[in-house]
Structure formats: structure tokens, C-alpha cells
Amino acid sequence: MENRTKHLFLTGLCIAHLMAIAPSVFAADEPERNDLPLIEPDVKPVPVDQALIDTENFEIGAFAGVLNIEDFESSFVYGGKLTYHLSESFFFEAGVGFAEAGATSFENLAGNVQVLTDSERDYSYYNISLGYNILPGQAFLTENYGFNTNFYLIGGAGATDFGGDTRFTLNAGAGYQILLTDSLAIHLGVRQHYYQIDVVGAEKTSMNTEISTRLSVFF
């Protein structure tokens, strides 16, 4: 009877010992897990050379284009602009432009009749405007080379010298800026100039449309 008790006691100890070491034995036999995906996607980043706006806040440039002077045909226009960037969104622009008005339809029909003298046909304007970049983006020349761009709205006030008088002028328009390098940019823009004039009859609001391109540098 005593031997049976010892036998049962020893059997219980062995079973308890086996149960204690069993988890570690099974864990050692378990194959090592690999969390890597079975198929790795072959995706590589494509380097893109982007022209960034220079750290300087000033931009100066020259422009040329076409100005439709109401009642006086379309004329070649040229000038310059100085821009101060207040932030990434807002900027001030000071501009000056020069053109020469053509003949009116009445002058073309009447022959020798002149509504304005040659000196009075000289057209010039100067203004100060506030611009807002509403749509920054990118334009890609190739899949590996891109340019930063800005689409902006602009408007302001100034004066126009035309027809022997100086006239208060409002302007409004939009433009598209392409940054060729970190200090060189090209602009494509359209602008409307509004002022009161009475050269060809009753006083009216003249709306002159300007389409131009500009090359500018940051400094």
C-alpha cells in the first residue's frame, strides 16, 4: 500500500513537470514566422527637378503684348512690373505700360479727318495692384522634370494718360506664372483697364483688354 502511494505521488510529479515544460518545447519546434509579403511591389520614387520660388520677396520683369484700345484698334503694348510678395498667397504689383493708339473707324472712313493728334495718341498707364494666388500647382515638361506654377487673380487702381488727359483707371484680371528656375519666372496674363472717356462723343466707360507675357527675375 505504501509503495502504491509513492508510485501515484511520483507519477503526479512527472505529469506536472511535463505540463510545465510542454509550451516551451512546442514553441521551440514552431517554425519562425516571416511577416514579409510574399510579393514585394517594384515601386521606385521618380526624381523630379522642381523650380522653387527664390527666398527673395521682390520680383522685377518686362512684358509685351497686345492692348485693345476701345474705338482705337489694337496696339502693341510693352512695359515693366515690380512685385513684392507679402506671403505665399498675396503680393503687391506696380506696373507701367506704353502703347500708341490707332485710328478710329470714323477716321478710316472720312479720310483726312483726325480725332486725335499724333501726340495725343500716345497711350501710357501706371497702377498698383493686389494679387492673390488661388491655385498653386505643377506643370510637367517630361515625366522627370516639372515646374511649379501659380494661377492668380489681380486688381488695382492707377491712371491712364491718353487723348490729352489723365484718367483715373481701375484694372482687374488674371495670370498664370511658371517658375522656370528658383529665380526666373514667366507670366501669361490678361487684364482689363476701365476709365471714363469722351474723345469720340458722349462720356462713357472705356474697357481696354490687354493680353501679355512677361519674363521676370527674383532678387
Rank of each mutant, 00 (worst) to 15 (best):
60 I>P: 13
62 A>R: 01
62 A>V: 15
63 F>P: 13
64 A>Q: 04
64 A>P: 06
65 G>C: 12
65 G>A: 08
66 V>F: 08
67 L>M: 05
69 I>S: 04
69 I>E: 11
70 E>A: 03
72 F>V: 05
74 S>P: 13
75 S>R: 07
75 S>W: 03
76 F>V: 13
77 V>D: 10
78 Y>F: 15
80 G>V: 11
81 K>H: 06
81 K>I: 02
81 K>T: 10
81 K>L: 09
82 L>N: 08
83 T>S: 13
86 L>M: 09
86 L>W: 01
86 L>Q: 07
89 S>M: 14
89 S>G: 07
90 F>N: 00
92 F>W: 06
94 A>V: 10
95 G>N: 02
97 G>D: 07
99 A>H: 03
99 A>K: 05
101 A>Q: 04
101 A>M: 07
102 G>E: 02
102 G>V: 04
103 A>C: 11
104 T>D: 00
105 S>E: 09
106 F>G: 00
108 N>H: 05
109 L>P: 08
109 L>F: 03
113 V>T: 14
113 V>D: 08
114 Q>H: 11
114 Q>C: 11
114 Q>I: 09
115 V>K: 04
115 V>H: 06
115 V>L: 13
115 V>D: 11
116 L>E: 00
117 T>K: 05
118 D>C: 10
119 S>Q: 01
121 R>S: 02
122 D>V: 12
123 Y>I: 07
126 Y>P: 15
126 Y>T: 14
129 S>C: 07
130 L>P: 09
130 L>C: 08
132 Y>N: 03
134 I>E: 07
135 L>W: 13
136 P>K: 04
137 G>N: 02
137 G>Q: 07
137 G>K: 06
138 Q>A: 15
140 F>I: 09
142 T>L: 08
143 E>W: 02
146 G>D: 03
149 T>M: 11
149 T>K: 02
150 N>R: 10
151 F>L: 12
151 F>A: 06
151 F>P: 15
151 F>C: 00
152 Y>R: 07
155 G>A: 09
156 G>F: 03
157 A>N: 00
157 A>K: 06
158 G>T: 00
159 A>S: 13
159 A>N: 12
161 D>Q: 09
162 F>K: 08
165 D>V: 12
165 D>H: 05
167 R>Q: 11
167 R>C: 04
167 R>T: 13
167 R>L: 14
168 F>V: 08
170 L>P: 01
171 N>A: 01
172 A>L: 02
174 A>R: 03
174 A>F: 13
174 A>W: 02
174 A>M: 12
175 G>L: 10
175 G>N: 06
175 G>S: 05
177 Q>L: 14
177 Q>A: 05
180 L>G: 00
181 T>D: 01
182 D>E: 00
182 D>G: 03
182 D>Q: 06
182 D>F: 03
182 D>S: 12
183 S>E: 10
183 S>Y: 10
184 L>K: 11
185 A>F: 11
186 I>E: 06
187 H>T: 14
187 H>Q: 10
188 L>E: 07
188 L>M: 12
189 G>A: 15
189 G>R: 01
191 R>S: 04
195 Y>T: 07
195 Y>A: 10
196 Q>P: 14
197 I>S: 15
198 D>H: 01
199 V>N: 06
199 V>I: 15
